[in-house]
Design a protein around this nucleic acid. Structure first.
Lengths: 193, 193
DNA sequence: GTCTATAGGTCGATAGAC
DNA sequence: GTCTATCGACCTATAGAC
């Protein structure tokens, strides 16, 4: 079992920043909260990082890479193209925590911080590429109807997931997420008739 | 033309709070910023409202009501049920500003403030009801296929819109929103074949 | 109704000892 | 590498004059 308290100070700082960015976002995350959660002093933090922005950029890149890794397992893994798109939609998620990447798009201060905005943009660009490749493959193989635009279908799939998080958090329940995904899967199947 | 500076202090406070809640969210919105934008002094603000939470609850309820009014025009307006669902998806929006309601679902401090969380929950409940009623009507009339679950389709439509906002803001462009909507409309039309 | 003064707390960072 | 001390600014109110 991984235990944060076993890791060195730098790793603990990154891990607690990852969690806080996910939970509270960039603007609402204070260096103080980071240090307390990491059980690290101020001197240590400013020794390892130049400041909040530096630490956030490192931690956010880490969150983004983990999110991408999970998406690659669904979208570029085993199974037919259509199965992979549906598998991505149906993937188990910690719905009420929200998406650690999409979360940052709602944080004006994060969007104004170039290092963070760049990671956000690039992460969704790769996600979009993975989904679009699966959609294009599905159309080419005849699994999806010919008239489907792969880029549009890919964007719709990403939007259902991101929107599902929003609706679930607003409701305080994962049900809206699951319902939105079920509706999208049903539409994809119905369109392939 | 409506000009904020023509209105009285209380109205100007509500209007500037509406804008700031939309732009920055609850946690990142300071009473100071509200006062400056409203061109109102501190004494005036604490005369009209008990504090930040009180003012935010009033302003957020206002934002929510405006959002609902626009949604009602699409989802409970003229046209066939399927046309209304597609019309809701295609409605002109200030995409890069994001959704003033969905925005709050990403703000942990707002979710922890009961008055704000209640407005958020109730607004999406009504939105969901409007979309589900249109979907049910479409299925009943044969416009949408019999095997479509109205609640699921409604939730998917809301999710595409909310997710479209996230993807557009992440990209700094309305294109992802439009693409996600186009994909959803294409799926709905293809499923009705 | 609106003003100014004041308060105790946090924010994000720097300085210098060890 | 980590500690403590200190900084000026801002946060969210409250108090009391006018």
């Amino acid at each position: 079992m991984y235990d944060m308290s076993d890791a060195d100070a730098r790793t603990r700082l990154i891990d607690s920043t990852r969690e806080l960015l996910w939970e509270r976002g960039y603007a609402a995350m204070s260096p103080r909260a980071i240090m307390q959660r990491a059980e690290v002093g101020q001197g240590s933090m400013y020794h390892h990082f130049t400041g909040k922005a530096d630490l956030a950029a490192t931690a956010f890149a880490d969150n983004a890479e983990r999110t991408l890794a999970a998406a690659r397992r669904s979208l570029a893994g085993a199974g037919s193209a259509r199965e992979r798109l549906i598998g991505y939609l149906n993937r188990r998620r910690e719905v009420l925590r929200g998406c650690p990447v999409g979360r940052m798009a709602q944080d004006a201060e994060a969007l104004d911080t170039p290092e963070l905005a760049a990671v956000l943009r690039e992460t969704f660009a790769e996600l979009r590429g993975l989904a679009a490749a699966a959609a294009a493959e599905g159309v080419a193989s005849g699994e999806l109807p010919e008239h489907v635009d792969p880029d549009e279908l890919a964007e719709t799939v990403l939007a259902v997931v991101q929107g599902g998080y929003v609706l679930a958090r607003a409701e305080g329940s994962p049900v809206p997420f699951d319902r939105a995904v079920a509706g999208a899967v049903a539409l994809i199947k119905a369109a392939s008739c």
